[in-house]
Design a protein around this nucleic acid. Structure first.
Lengths: 209, 209, 209, 209
DNA sequence: GATGAATGAGATTTCATTCAT
DNA sequence: GATGAATGAAATCTCATTCAT
């Protein structure tokens, strides 16, 4: 109850299949991750999508539209998973906090390129598109701030500055996308473990739970 | 008392005057911060430097050279200040840790644009230039890792994974450059205070010192 | 009495119903009138015709074919009406001249867009198509030249240079399509009256008839 | 006195040297006259100017700017010559009328391509540029209307509709640019003579002077 | 060092047209 | 006839860079 899939949402926020991006966006993702949006030409995007240049324009009106489409999908998936994680934490504030952080971490490992591009290329969006994506990102961050606040209440540490802590914590987790490699020395589970330690310490809830 | 200048290094790692960049690099910094390296044209750089285009080429051989010159200066200043901060901490491991973090934070506030461009445009360097800059950055991070390790030894928390913690901590502090504004609601001192709290918690040394 | 239809020709060269163009050509006419042939895309033509792009190609083999089809219809209608007008003038040379001019004028008011496009886009036709249309136009102009010549004979003014006069006169009437508006200050009848005055003066037959 | 050149104005409105256009505009003129503005590519313009494409952009910011620059020069020369012609007519209304018409005619013969492009490509200007050129053209036409009015007063023909007559007359003269060839059967002087006949007839002042 | 002029290469985008369904 | 997808060619324009003066 409550964990059954509703309307195509990911049933399990911990499980990651292959990225569900359409071919063009998958190709664009790779190129943007490698050289950045500005340094990626339409030709590269077309090649990556195994299309001619006008073929690409048949699906998207502009390079900018490709970027927004990609980022909206990414931020939406992140938000969906964050919500699912939050819900899975039940009533225990610390469990909810842990789940939120873990979700953020896993996303930045299993959707490494997506997350990396989403954070580095926000600046490449035109204002209108950017604000839509920033809204999604902020909503996600708000979840984190709330769980921090709640967790701190229970363990009677300071409950102030939850927003600052959320931003710091978020930055820390987002940074994982910068260096994580599937074939690196640490397994995702191990990374989650270590970072959860960092995270609890950061909010002043270490040693508990 | 420990503040004596050594070899032209900044006497006080806490004090920031105006950025000592040559005019061309100062202009480039602004442009790169605003639009990114790729999206900035040589003409914009020349205009920002109040120079003609060939005049600019008189000083730097290429756009790439402008970027690498800028980033080397920035990373070098950061490293110098980190070393000075470290030294100012004397023999107390926790003081050394605090100083390292504080130095990192202050740099990302008072050299906001510099730090932002240095981290976002590393990718725009050609491999050879990039590795030189990465080496400087890594050296700075190594300082942090060492202080973490030392601090933990004293407070008998885990001494493993200091590298991970250093990376996480570093990411967190670097992120400050993304949002800090001189006219924002928080003073630099206040930010330092809060983040030092986060930092100590993160490495498991909260409540001490 | 002289108004009997011959071979589907318009009975009355003075009366104008809605333009009898097929839908595709009507749409093309509007687009060509507004932006010109070169600046009009096949997609615009398809949209204007409420057809898909391949649907449009089902009817016409190319953009060029659309243009030539349109222009041939227009020049043919103009020629037909000129002939009808001429015939309606009976044996009176001046009446024949007046009718020719009036017909030309009315066509350039009531088939304003058609006439405008026909004259401005002749140059956009490939040579083969152009020569067919030019032949039709020249035939029309020849009618005018003949009536000028005949009218002058009667009123013993110079009968030379009828070709020049025809061209000048024709240009003058064609120009009406450039500025005439249905909701303008002058009624078609009023315009005809004034221009007939100009025309008679031009050929040296003023004050007569 | 009065015929000496003042400030670079053409001393004699009847005499035409080679067109004083800068090389780029001269090349553009030829191309626009041949294929029209829309059908002329930047590459053709560059080739005609014996420049590379970016070389062309060094001098003009856009294709549109090339067109306006050209048209403004053309309309300005036409207006200057019209004023000079008017002045040369002294106090005699008919002489002033004749001079105005003759000036218009000569311009459309000796600046054939210029005049042709100026009239056919007005529509290719963006509104702002168009209105500037239209203002120049209208001023020229206003001169014609005034002379018509004055001439008619003297010969007690109708003085109404001078604006209509000016437009009709102007159109007629402009049309000369469509067909005039230097190596054609008629000399400029001969054409002027015939068209002056047409013009006087058109305004109802034939047989006089 | 400033200036004006120039360029090869390449950017994004649009074109007319076609084909399988 | 409609549709969606595709493409080679070409459009306008900008880039980093260079050179003579």
């Amino acid at each position: 109850m409550g964990q059954d899939a509703s309307a195509g949402q990911p049933t399990d926020w911990r499980s990651y299949g292959p990225s569900p991006l359409p071919k063009i966006l998958r190709g664009a993702l790779g190129a943007f991750a490698e050289h950045g949006y500005q340094a990626t030409s339409i030709r590269e995007l077309a090649t990556a999508a195994e299309l001619s240049v006008p073929g690409l324009y048949h699906h998207y009106q502009s390079k900018q539209e490709i970027l927004v489409s990609l980022l909206e999908i990414v931020y939406t998936e992140l938000l969906d998973r964050s919500r699912a994680a939050l819900a899975s934490g039940g009533d225990d504030p610390l469990a909810r906090f842990d789940a939120s952080v873990e979700s953020l971490l896993r996303f930045h490992m299993f959707r490494r390129a997506e997350a990396f591009v989403a954070s580095t290329e926000l600046r490449s969006l035109i204002p209108e598109n950017r604000s839509r994506c920033v809204a999604l990102r902020d909503e996600q961050q708000e979840i984190l701030a709330t769980t921090i606040c709640d967790a701190r209440k229970v363990y009677d540490t300071v409950t102030e500055h939850a927003g600052d802590a959320a931003r710091a914590l978020s930055t820390m987790c987002v940074g994982v996308a910068t260096w994580y490699r599937e074939d690196g020395p640490l397994s995702p589970d191990e990374i989650v473990k270590r970072y959860l330690g960092f995270a609890r310490g950061l909010i002043g809830a270490a040693g508990q739970g």
